[in-house]
């Protein structure tokens, strides 16, 4: 397995250690724990990028800081009627928020598949998850280069 920030690695392990039915329960728990947007972002929809590959509306903001590590903040917004989308956003928030840009860029592209949900979730949904990760990485690269 490629290197992953510790928090994310622990979440992946948490998923793979339990049977499939419980993985869905776990994803649901994550969906409930998606942190609310900080006030400075909540009223600024123009700052968000929409992940159009997701089956339900999902918006994200990536903030790369100017410190040596380029500490990266990740913020997500998804409606409560979209628990699967929220759940995965919450996994990324809990696993990657506050990591360095370099650490996030090395997260393997197939990280969503490593959660062991590929049988339970449709291929469309799995692709939505991969797209979320890909868009985060693309935004980081753009911000580092600008």
């Amino acid at each position: 397995m490629s290197p992953m920030p510790q928090n994310l690695r622990e979440i992946v392990e948490e998923f793979t250690e339990v049977p499939e039915a419980q993985r869905l329960e776990l994803l649901l728990d994550f969906s409930r724990e998606l942190p609310p947007l900080p006030e400075r972002l909540a009223d600024h929809p123009e700052l968000f990028e929409q992940v159009v590959e997701c089956q339900s509306p999902l918006f994200l903001v990536v903030e790369v800081a100017n410190d040596a590590a380029h500490t990266t903040g990740l913020y997500f917004s998804a409606p409560p009627e979209a628990p699967t989308t929220r759940g995965f956003a919450s996994v990324l928030a809990a696993g990657l928020h506050g990591s360095s840009a370099a650490e996030i860029l090395t997260v393997p592209e197939d990280m969503p598949q490593q959660l062991g949900l590929t049988r339970a979730l449709s291929p469309l949904r799995m692709r939505g998850m991969s797209a979320m990760l890909a868009r985060i990485k693309r935004q980081i690269t753009e911000q580092l280069n600008s």
Binding site: L24, P83, L121
Partner: peptide, 22 residues
């Protein structure tokens, strides 16, 4: 549902889930 976790967030009393995909 399209979102297969939606049932678990709250459903009509007594209803069971049927999952089109699995």
């Amino acid at each position: 549902d399209e979102d297969i976790l939606l049932y678990n967030t709250g459903h009509i009393p007594g209803a069971l889930k049927i999952d089109w995909h699995t």
